[in-house]
Design a protein around this nucleic acid. Sequence first.
DNA 1: TTAATTTATGCAACCGATTGCAAAAAAAAA
DNA 2: TTTTTTTTTGCAATCGGTTGCATAAATTAA
Lengths: 345, 345
Amino acid sequence: MSTSNEKKEVTIYDIAAALQISAATVSRGLKNHPAIKQATKDRIFAQAERMGYRFNTFARNLRTKRTYTIGVIVPRLNSMFMSDVIAGMEKVSNEAGYELIISQSLETMEKEMKNAVTMFNNRVDGLLVSLAYTTTGIDHFKRFFDKNIPLIFFDRVFEHPNCPNIVINNYKAAYELTSYLIQQGARRIMHVAGNLNRNVYSQRFKGYRDALLDNGIQFQEGWLIVNNLSAEDGIHTAKHIYALTERPDAVFVANDTCAVACMQELKRNGIYVPKDILVAGFNNDPIATVVEPNLTTVNYRGPEMGEMAAKTLINLLNGNGEQHTAATIMLRHELIIRDSTQRPQ
Amino acid sequence: MSTSNEKKEVTIYDIAAALQISAATVSRGLKNHPAIKQATKDRIFAQAERMGYRFNTFARNLRTKRTYTIGVIVPRLNSMFMSDVIAGMEKVSNEAGYELIISQSLETMEKEMKNAVTMFNNRVDGLLVSLAYTTTGIDHFKRFFDKNIPLIFFDRVFEHPNCPNIVINNYKAAYELTSYLIQQGARRIMHVAGNLNRNVYSQRFKGYRDALLDNGIQFQEGWLIVNNLSAEDGIHTAKHIYALTERPDAVFVANDTCAVACMQELKRNGIYVPKDILVAGFNNDPIATVVEPNLTTVNYRGPEMGEMAAKTLINLLNGNGEQHTAATIMLRHELIIRDSTQRPQ
DNA sequence: TTAATTTATGCAACCGATTGCAAAAAAAAA
DNA sequence: TTTTTTTTTGCAATCGGTTGCATAAATTAA
């Protein structure tokens, strides 16, 4: 095993012995317990410092059965949005004395299940989850419910009596965006969605469809494309559109990655945006301002979502907010209009 | 405190009692110890399942003084590169029975120091670090050296006798890229670098400078711009270039974000890439293939770097590789030539 | 059938902080 | 000075696996 030239670890017993007091006093002193005289505390801290003491989290966890740790499971870390979300969570958590354990499901239910087990074994006090693409149910979180470990979904959520949800109003955002496209003169509007089992995509689809409906446009089956919203899917979508005899005059894609890829492939095939077709995305990724023309999209602030999720969880953990734990918290979004949907007159 | 309607936790003692055997046997059985008869193991596992037993990590950690946890500190999570790195680390770690604790320094030394303390208190068995932008020294890792906790730097590294480094050959990559620009006919080549205290930027600068030198081009002080390589810095850089009386005919920027922003701002000011000026970046971010023209850059595979870093660390932890722990491991990179540097004839 | 091996299991002392309760010390009241 | 009250501090059991060493059980050899 490991090179074991580490010297013996210093414990509160060592400090107690050196100071001729009891370990109990040291334990209390170190955590600033009011029953300990200031003078004693000072001596304890000084001695701890002098001996190079480090607190043993495990001994405490073993005893208290709490870890002051929050588990986070997200599909992927590599988006500005997720990074922002996590930064927000970290801020709130650290201020409240909690640590974060982060893991990514890489969009598969299988990995998500493994992550859940790991989190469970690491005895996180609570869990913040945004569901993977392929997740079909949430039985893998049952153990958390059984043990009364609070679980909060954010962004990609699941309706469950035990779980508050933190989301944006995907329905409304899609409705607004679609209405805007109609207002720009579009009549044949396609929608590229992700897995409709995920709330974010089903809600966006519904918002889109209802906007059509409310504007007297009959939704046609062929206008809906469901795929994984990857860049490759964007290219496929463009090819599909290109091959249509009756082409759409606008496409609303449920994320920016796919929208951008689609737009570029359309352009390569001589279909220009926004001249020939309007394109809009969702998320406001950095690429949206790089692609030409710049992409119209929906922005929602990640830090806010992360903060809200962490705050809600910590309130639950501290026993506050039991009286009024909201089932769903909706954060605000904003439509960002750029050149990709500005029909030239 | 928390709603405490959780039932009593099941322990190996409960399993032992139910099966009329000793806790020691249960403990060994659960971890598949060869000294336990298969039949006994089967009974143990079945009983554990039946009683809803969950392993207590803390009791083990307390006893073994190992956590099977690896700490990871990175500047930011929100890049494809970092996400890839972490995916690679996770793969190798999980296969070897280790968990990852990930935190981001958000490019500041202050946060990095805090993260280091957290990791230390969480008793990670080892640490994988890529340094923040503003980090000026590594005293905050001294406690790890003192306790003989292995620390490996990757990408943004620091030379230290105790720490293996996992990097790419930034010098060579920059040298090759610059040579290529010269070959394309460029003679007045600017370089936009990040903080020169970070190896990645100083090495890229040196590679650039030596390539000039070796091609008989005299490096001029004004050709070097040092900034934070953000998008805003890219715009500033473009404005700076625009204002020059004697403009460069090529710019080599040390990352893609900044390169792209710079390119776009140049374009807005009527300076066209690659007609008027060649632009190259570094990293091969997704935006490099979205911007027009597509950006020439240097690719290096994150997963490989993550895997290598984790492997090296785990070898150290397991006591292998002590005889030949390399001080520096260099991974391969590749020059990716795209339109932004193709001078039209 | 008995002795020599091999295999399987148990004993019990750890790891280090926590905390209810009791007792000692110090301060205030009588 | 004695008694009462308030502060401080200590005792000791507890959390739940782990593991060296000893012993019992099962197998094999004699």
